[in-house]
Structures are given as C-alpha cells and as structure tokens.
Design a protein around this nucleic acid. Sequence first.
DNA 1: GGTAACTGGGTTTTT
DNA 2: CCCAGTTACC
Length: 689
Amino acid sequence: MSSPQQTTLSAGDVTFVVVFESAVLDNLDEEQRRAAAWPGGPLLVLAGAGTGKTSTLVARTSWLRGQGMDPGRILLLTFTRRAADEMLSRITAAPGLASATRVRGGTFHAIAHRVIRQHAEAFSLPPRFTVIDPGDVTDLLDVLRGNHGLISTERRTPRAAVCADIYTRCVNTQLPVTDVVRAGFPWCTSFSVQLAEMFRAYVAHKRGHGLVDFDDLLLLWRAALADGAAGPVLRGMFDAVLVDEYQDVNAVQADIVRLLRPDGAGLTCVGDDAQAIYGFRGADPGHLRRLRADFPGLTVVRLSRNYRSRPNVLRLANVIRPQSPGLELELTASRTSGQRPALVRCYDEATQAREICARVLAARESGMDLRDQAVLVRSAHHSDVLEVELSARGIPYVKYGGLRFTEAAHVRDFLAALRVITNPADDIAWFRVLRLHDGIGPVHARRISDALRLTEPAPLARRNEAVAAAPARSREALAATLDRLADAALLAGTAEQAAAVLAAIDGPLRARYADAAARIADLQRLTDAAASRPSLHDALVELALDPPVSASDLAGPPRLDEDYLVISTIHSAKGLEWPVVHLPHLIDGAVPSDMALATPDGLDEERRLFYVAVTRARDQLYLYAPLRLHHHRLARDDRHSLGQITRFLDAAAIAACHPIDATPPPPVIPRSGPLTAQIDAALDTLWSG
DNA sequence: GGTAACTGGGTTTTT
DNA sequence: CCCAGTTACC
C-alpha cells in the first residue's frame, strides 16, 4: 500500500486534492482504491462476497465529490431499500460530504416513482394514480381470468398467481408470452393465446383506472428516458450513475442504465455474477457479462480480498463458486485460521432441528449472542420443524422473508380503504372494501362498483345508488362505511385521513375477524407510521415498495437488550453476515429446490444461491444434510454414505468440510410376532370370563 | 341467484 | 397454512 501522506508532502500545488484523496481513500486496499478513484468511465467493479463493496462505492462517491462533482448530480441505484438507506447514510457520514446537497439514491423502483410522480401528466397518468403491489395484480388477474377462458373445470388452468408470474416475466425479460411460457411454464403452453389476450385486457384495465404496477414504474421511466424530448432532460440531471448489484438487473433496468449513460461516461456498475439470485423475476446476470459489449471502453476492477470470512470458509466458497469466462474471481482471505465448515449428516429433519438447537445453545454458552447466529433457508417453510424445536427450548427467534405484514388480510383491507380515498377509480381496492361487508360477494361487489361508476369523477357522490345495489341485509353497514369514507376524503393531513379511514372500516373488520381487536391494534400502528409521510399517496407507495416485514417492525428498532436467533431465507440474507451461520436442508429437492431443476439455468441459479449462503458466515459455518425428508422420500440408500447428498457437495466441496455424524437414528424395535394378535387374544380372555 | 361454510390438496425465492 | 372446488343455506 502506498502512503498517501508522503505523497501529500511532496506534491506541491496539488496538495489539496491529494490530502482530500488520502482522507477518502485511506482505509481502502489497493484494489478498492483503484475502483474508488478510477478517473474515466465506464467501470465495472467485480466485487466478490465480503470484499468491501459498499465501502468502495461510498468512497467512490466521495472521490467524485472531491473531483468537484455536485453530489446532487450523483445517482445511486440499488435493489433494496435497506441497501439504499445504508449506503446513503454512510455517504453522508463520509469526510468531505457535509454539504447540504445530497447524493440522490434509492431503489430502481423508488427513483422511477419519484420521476413519474413529479411528471404524472406527462405520462398521461392521473395525478393521484395508485401503485399496486403484486398481490393486487394477482387479485385483478383473478377477476379477468374468467373472461379469457382461464377458468375451467375440465382442464387444469394456470392460477392467478401463475398468470401474474408469467406477465411480469414477459415484461422484465422483454420476451413474448409464448417464449416465456415455453421456457418457464411448459404446462401452460396450450393457454398462451388466452394469456396474451388477458394481459392485453389487464394493461387496458390499469390505464383506465389509474393503476400502475411495479413493472410499469420501470417501463415508464425507461420510456421517458428514451423519449426524444424528455430523455435529454432526465439524462442531463446526473453526471454520475452508480449501480449496485448489477448482476440482478432485468432487461428493462439494463435499458434504463444504458439510457442514463449512453456512452458509459460516469457509469459505475458494481456486482458479482456469481451472486445473481433473482432470475425468477426476470433478472439475468447476462446483462453484467455483456457490459463489455455494451460499453467498449469498459474497465473491469476486481475486488477479491475478502474481509469477512475465515480462510476455511472461503476455501469452500471458492470450490462452489461458479466462474464465467472473462470474469473469473477467486476470494483471498485477509483474516486468519478458523475451523473448517462442519457437514452434519442427520437422520431426518427432527434430528437436524435438534442438532441446530444444540449448536446454537453451545455457542451461546461460550458467550456468543443469539443474534450473532443465523439459520439460512432456501424456502420459508424449511424452518417449520426447527421453529417448533426452538419454541420448545425457549430460544427466541425472528424470521425474515416469507410472509410479509402487508400480505395479511386485514392489512390489505385497510390499505384498500386508504387507496379508495387517494384514487377513487381504483376498482381493485373498491372490490376489496365492498367484499369486506357481510353478505357482499363478488357479484354484488361488481354491481355496487358499477353503480358508483368509478371511472367518472367523484364516485362517492353516487353512494346512495351504490347502497341500493347491495343486498338488503348489507345496506346499513355499507351506507355507514361509505359515508365515513366520504368524510375522510375531505379531511386534510395524512394522520387525520388515515385515522378516519380506519374508523370507517372498524365495524366491518370487527364483524369479519374473530381476533379483530389485535388486528385493529396492528392497523393503529400502521396509521402512526403513515402519519409521518407528506401524503397518503406517498405512504401507500412506500408501503408497497418496501413493506414492513412484521407488525413489530412498525414499532421501531427492537430494544438493544433483546436477543434472538435470526432465521432468514437466503434471498433475504443477501448482503448480510453473521459470525455463525447454520445452513440446513442440504439435500436434492430442497437445496437445490426441486422447482428449479427443470432447466439448466434454474440449477445454475440454485448453485449461486448456495454460494451466497456460504459466504454469509464470518467465523463458523454449519451445513446440515438430513438424509430423509418427510413428504419427500428422496433418500436413496447410497446417500447414507458421504456421497452426494446434494449435488452441490461434490468430492472437492466435501473435502473442504469436516464431516460429523449426528445422533444415530432411533433403534429399530425387533418384532417377535404380530402384536395386535397378542393383545386381541388377551382382550378375548376378558369377554370369555 | 348469490354467499358462506366446509373440505381436501398443495406449498420458492421478492422489488 | 392457504386456495379452489363443492355443498348447504338465504
């Protein structure tokens, strides 16, 4: 490492710049410094797991600032809100960035929304458009499905959620339905025509009701950037664009990046194609691999020095890391020693749960907090058995990934009621609010919303006609709700409106849910959280794009004295690290998931997922291989030897581990004869006495 | 005709 | 545990 201080003393009239650089680049290694202070563009930083990618990106923004760039003209794009928040807060804290102007940053979707919101009319959207989440998309497609021959008792038809998957895959890969269905949903090939028609109707419906889905946010931003008039203005807002996790961009996002920086000047992409795990939603690491072709002047800087994990963990990581031509990377350790990852063979899932608990408690006995340990699973239900065992032993845990707070029925009811106020044309929201009332099902809900004439101004003014369309026994409750919603719409202030909307549906909620009091308490917290937003629209968009993981999330950060084990899906664990990581279910069908085995691409992604999981561990990694799973009789006899339990643990991977045999299976009780015959004979003596 | 209550089969990952 | 399909009730 060169010494920036010495350079400073001998540098004459460039002293200021060098001093500044030394402050900004001081704590970086050679590779990181080269990336952070790369003078030209376009730049690809190929950053292996745990190599200080975030610090490097933060340093690069500081360095750009030091070169005289206005921070307000630097755009930072990420995939998660968490990543955006973390980076922006570290940028603010970095030296030289105390200025009032701040670096712009956020997720692709959030930035797209910001652009669209400011120029809604230019996008021919009503000013109070609604951003609908994937759950709403599914609800809407479920209604449309009936009109397009996609409900049948004769043949198995794709369900609404599958239709939504296909739709979003088409948009995000920019491939026609037939291709997407053939490649990813082969059992739906005979429905391609119906699906295509339904998608056309779906798009028309969104446009007619002021609805914008997640995919639309990206499409609209891309369209604006490609527009002859708007494009240059939007492009001209930024001098530098930095994209995090570039391996996770989809076709639309890759277009957006190219449109933002057509010649690559000022473009920095950071990513690692071995960590691409979002193919199922249209992301493709091919976009990262093609960057050289997109930008002929591209410089690739590799970050390979790992600051996170012990060498023994990295040895396994390097064995399983998939390499792609021209972008090879091998992690080198900066920390010392450590134990080899343990490969724990377990007889069954219950044994696996006991083994995990035993190791978690042992680590705690040796002074490690529970929160220093994580269990990472491929799919949310893989921790079901473990959760029972943890509860039985009184080990507190928090689970990330899987069901989110905003997917709970009562939360969706409330959000729908809020949306009715912000965008009265939002008929999916109306549908949900109406159906909340006892006696109103799909047919009456349709009739009532027809009576409201949602696409015309002020539907609530026609609420008397709407009540008349309801069945007699529902009229009183419906009239009360509609009156209160109409009043709520007139209020000023986010907090007041949210509280009034909650009061409006209080009655129907209590009638619907047995545990209504607890649910309403949840919603109360939601109104408190929404109150700090400038408008209901903003609160709703934020909730859609970054839904709280649980109701407790809304109550602020957990208390510091609370200690709990973390259970997380591997997807949600991306970018995080723990001293101890437990990785259960390493058996074909679970890791890799049997859902992904149909295509070679799917299997490749599973391998990258495994790589992401392994590289989360700082000190100790435990791999668990249950030899048989409950409903899932995969275990072949040869798996009882340390052969291939999962296809990801080949000979080289196993050699990097320390094999352990867990508690042996329960003994088989020898049978001396048919026991029922014995007791039956004994019982028989009772009847003959 | 329309809704609610019941039952049986199936479950990846998420901005 | 959630959703689709079926049946029973208004």
